[in-house]
Nucleic acid binder design. Structure first.
Lengths: 205, 205
DNA sequence: ACTAACATGTAAAGCGTTACATGATTTA
DNA sequence: TAAATCATGTAACGCTTTACATGTTAGT
């Protein structure tokens, strides 16, 4: 078994980008960012474009990815596409198996406002919760649509499964996301009920 | 109505610390950090000690808080305690009412690993999800315990309500937290069921 | 022809953590 | 009296975003 103690470490974002590449596709920074928004974005924050480009440069420097310039037909300008290397594959596999899993981190803006509800008018509180409920439902629908698309692709043998009818991990993650955002929606609705039923919460601390 | 456009802005953490002070208590940085861990920590990440101290200095410079050194009895060394100013109260109130609510941000380490499940052994996946389930249940229990404590305090007229039997916003937030972590626990359990029922998910991408 | 979106970056600023330093106080 | 915890910071580092720059392609 190869020693991996001398492999350069990466920030969490670096592993996430390398993880995107670990599915084997050759992609540009721009495409990686867009894919990240639609996949990682459901349960992990999605890095900015500039950070994706930066991480890709770092991955290449570390030998975890290789890049080449491609000139597509009927396009004058080149784009740079990245592919994971064997070394990168070994590194991300070692990371996934051995690095400690950091616990979920939540920065819930709407809940911060609710916690400071004594600074708001009751009506603003209701708007806040209704907004959060609708926001969560919107994300749930997006996850559900992606899940349905993966199901159709599976039936067509195109994507989303490995061709044996079994489901891939990204599809499992989409399932989780649909349930998670359904729960977020219900939690907001429950709080709306709470403040409606118990009457107004006192406005002073 | 006073113009507030010339009030200095703050990072989200600054508003969170000022929000803690907006409940009116005079507190030290150390106590604020501990309180933050037990309240904001459930739905917002809790800043480090050094950042709390830094934010307090900034709040004082902005005129949003004032501090004084207190020498407690049977202690030789002083501690510095902070209290919100009228200007700080006006600022945090204006922020809570007018600043856009930033959407929840999630960095879910366990889900990132699950999404990269093709890099793991099935047994590791199960351990991961079982760990996440237990972690969520632990937080749920803490929220439930704090909620029960607030209920007892309410019965004794000590804390958690405004003395009229109505519930305060921090207590509402605790209720939300208990439900949230119950849901997190159930979501992890559901994923465990999913991978058990559908058989092993393919290990290749 | 113009505008919006695509695509790829660089540079600066600041947020936030980690590690470290220091000394007091409590507990074993 | 030794260790652990309380308490308050400072300094360095690096992650991450924002703003900017630049050119391309597609739609109207």
């Amino acid at each position: 078994m190869a020693d991996d103690s001398d492999r350069p470490g990466l920030p969490a974002t670096g592993w996430a980008v390398l993880g995107l590449l670990s599915f084997g596709r050759e992609l540009s920074g721009y495409d990686l960012k867009k894919w990240s928004d639609r996949s990682l974005g459901f349960f992990y924050w999605s890095p900015s474009f500039s950070q994706v480009y930066g991480e890709l440069r770092r991955l290449e420097a570390a030998g975890y990815a290789s890049s080449r310039r491609v000139s597509e037909e009927n396009r004058t300008r080149d784009k740079r596409v990245y592919r994971i290397t064997d070394e990168g594959m070994a590194a991300v596999k070692a990371w996934a198996r051995e690095a400690p899993v950091d616990p979920p981190v939540l920065k819930h803006g709407p809940m911060l406002r609710l916690w400071l509800g004594h600074l708001l008018e009751p009506e603003q509180l209701r708007e806040l919760l209704a907004g959060q409920r609708d926001y969560a439902e919107g994300l749930r629908e997006r996850a559900a649509a992606d899940l349905a698309a993966a199901g159709l692709a599976a039936a067509a043998g195109t994507d989303g499964t490995d061709g044996t009818g079994r489901v891939t991990h990204p599809v499992l993650a989409l399932r989780w996301a649909e349930r998670y955002y359904a729960s977020e929606r219900d939690l907001a609705a429950a709080m709306l009920d709470d403040i409606a039923r118990t009457g107004d919460v006192p406005s002073g601390p």
